[in-house]
């Protein structure tokens, strides 16, 4: 059974006037069909307003589909009676590190989720310690979040979601406000969770280098899925990406330009190392 399954999923942002008449409605997502298997690392990319964040919020039942169905861990997200089961299945890390840390001490913040769920005291302690260890923040357990760097704050937020013990983790542009070091921190924790704990990762981003590290890339544009495949396939379709307002990885573009200039380079190059190796092979011939 796929952990996430969308069937003709649509979501409209609707504005109403005082008499509850619809003034305006924007199709944020239209007719999405999608399956994500357990244990996959999926990157979702798209320009701002492409619907990727709406999709993230639907996964956590922060939004409820306008039409169609969305199943998370087999549970229909529209089923209000199962709301807490859904949120327990899908942990969420948001964009702004400051606006998702509730407590003034790191470990108390990590404990917030399990406390809400009514987990017994000793079990909360175990989960908090384990989660902080996983994200490498044990040293800061008693610190104030205000004294941490952006990347460290996001790691605390990841630990907070992890303490709920979800089956899948959604990163909703969690790297957008970070510096390169902070971004690398978040990415490496996400990869670790995927590898070591077999967590399903949905990584929403607009950084191509991050998406390139996923098992699968989904490209969204105007509320629709326009591309879906392994990074190598998706990134080599440079025209299609550009048409979606995205920038293909620089190395893919360079490889393409060099091919156009007559060099017999293979398709599917996405990193500097790959391009260098291909050029070396070519030079040796």
């Amino acid at each position: 059974m796929p952990i996430i399954k969308a069937e003709n999923l649509s979501y409209d942002y609707v504005r109403r006037d005082e008499n509850d008449n619809i003034v305006d409605s924007i199709h944020a997502l239209s007719d999405i069909n999608l399956e994500i298997e357990e244990g996959q690392f999926v990157a979702v990319i798209g320009h701002n307003g492409s619907g990727k964040s709406t999709f993230a919020k639907l996964l956590n039942a922060l939004l409820i589909p306008t039409s169609g169905k969305l199943f998370v861990g087999g549970i229909d997200t529209a089923d209000e009676s199962r709301l807490w089961d859904i949120r327990r299945t899908a942990g969420m890390v948001f964009q702004n590190p400051d606006n998702q840390i509730i407590a003034s001490v790191v470990e108390e913040d990590v404990a917030f989720g399990p406390e809400n769920m009514g987990v017994p005291t000793e079990e909360i302690r175990r989960r908090v310690d384990a989660a902080l260890k996983t994200v490498g923040m044990t040293k800061f357990a008693k610190s104030s979040p205000n004294r941490l760097s952006g990347g460290q704050k996001q790691r605390v937020a990841i630990a907070g979601a992890l303490a709920i013990m979800p089956k899948c983790m959604i990163f909703d542009e969690s790297t957008a406000m970070l510096d390169p070091i902070g971004r690398a921190e978040v990415m490496s924790v996400a990869k670790k969770l995927n590898k070591e704990q077999r967590l399903t990762i949905i990584f929403i981003t607009h950084y191509m280098e991050e998406a390139a590290q996923a098992d699968r890339v989904i490209v969204m544009n105007k509320g629709k899925i326009v591309m879906d495949g392994i990074p190598r396939e998706v990134f080599t379709e440079t025209e299609k990406l550009t048409a979606c307002g995205l920038e293909p990885p620089q190395m893919t573009m360079l490889a393409k330009d060099l091919r156009d200039a007559g060099l017999a380079l293979p398709h599917g190059i996405i990193s500097a190392e790959e391009l260098a190796d291909a050029l070396r092979v070519l030079k040796g011939q």
């Binding site: 320009h47 701002n48 957008a176 406000m177 607009h206 191509m208 307002g245 995205l246 920038e247």
Partner: peptide, 10 residues
């Protein structure tokens, strides 16, 4: 350019 998508950056 902090926080902008590729199109916004460009």
């Amino acid at each position: 350019a902090a926080g902008l998508d590729p199109k916004g950056r460009r």
